[in-house]
Design a protein around this nucleic acid. Structure first.
Lengths: 194, 194
DNA sequence: ACGGGTTAAGGAAGTACGTAATGAAGTAGT
DNA sequence: ACTACTTCATTACGTACTTCCTTAACCCGT
């Protein structure tokens, strides 16, 4: 099919960018960027691809037993919570996804018996999610496969690089969060405004 | 060497890590990691969150007119292709997603009139996707909003950081790809083996 | 008390993505 | 030339995630 191992103009030759960003795609992306640099678009596409890669990889470690990446994330968070549980909304905020989504994930976990809902006595609107003994057991038995999967997909990353990656990603999340608030405030038009 | 900008304890107040990774969650994650460091798990969760953030942000620039992040990616790639089109499979490979997904995205684009399918004369199994004049026009009119959205979500990122982010993400993709091939080869069990 | 505003969770509808299975069309093997 | 394998797109089905909307319950001002 396509050229595989071509080195692009002025970059490191080991970079696996080539598959996703050949010169033609770069040229097309350039039309979408200010100052003619494609970096933002390339970076966002790379983040998307990496997220899918992590999901796929995590699936190999956990999903074979029926847990998806998002559900595992929720389960880990549930295991870190005092015994009376945590509300769906708090869980959603801490995981950075919509509360509706967490509702679905807790559905999944509850169906598998790994978590349960208990009513909140202080606020009858609220539902607390809590990990079950089966959930703790699940965590226990899949600790090792998860470790293996994580270290496999991050093979070759130094601790400093992991920190850097985490930091850059969370800055993105932060930016989006603030932008979201800002745009919601001065809402109305769907045109992006600087 | 553990960290620079913020360690587990002495953090600077501006780092957005805190929402996703409070000490309790870190402690739970630690049980899943070798050597007691939670970096891999934190990084993977951060990548997921960043991907969602980028999707949401891109949606503000493009989705108001009906294009999702994945569809925009495909459209950009289509615009970079010679006039006779590109097969669904090649498109999927270049975008790093499954061909099934590209089928759906091309469905979407075709329904909106931005792309079209044409039969491949050389191989009657194959279907070529091609951008339409309306698609080119769409790209033209949403160049600016997309630029704005991209520069908004990457506000504060230096070019070096964008390159670094892209590089780290693509290494992840690369790792997953190799792992996938490797595991498929020595296939059979779905057990993760150290 | 009681109605208005706010916040919680969940229902409905839609998109994106994946795997597994299907069918059609090339490609070999003999 | 006929069968067997492979490859391509697509259908079918399941999960994840989102936005919009509904209902229940809290909060508060009167």
């Amino acid at each position: 099919m396509k050229n595989v191992s071509k080195s692009v103009e002025g970059r490191l030759e080991r970079d696996p960018d080539d598959g996703l960003f050949d010169p033609q795609v770069r040229a097309a992306m350039a039309l979408f960027t200010v100052g003619g640099d494609t970096l933002a678009l390339e970076a966002s596409a790379a983040v998307r691809a990496a997220s899918h890669a992590v999901d796929r990889m995590r699936a190999r470690g956990a999903n074979s037993r029926g847990l998806s990446a998002g559900a595992l994330d929720i389960l880990i968070r549930l295991s870190a919570v005092p015994d009376d549980g945590i509300s769906i909304g708090d869980l959603a905020q801490s995981a950075g996804v919509s509360s509706r989504n967490v509702t679905g994930l807790v559905d999944t976990l509850e169906r598998d018996g790994l978590a349960q809902r208990v009513p909140d006595r202080r606020d009858r609107r609220s539902v607390l999610a809590r990990i079950t003994p089966a959930g703790l057991e699940w965590m226990d038995s899949f600790r090792l496969p998860t470790q293996v999967a994580m270290s496999a997909i991050f093979r070759g990353f130094t601790p400093a690089e992991l920190i850097q990656l985490r930091h850059l990603c969370l800055r993105l999340v932060d930016n989006q969060h603030h932008l979201d608030q800002h745009l919601s405030r001065a809402d109305g038009g769907d045109e992006a405004q600087p």
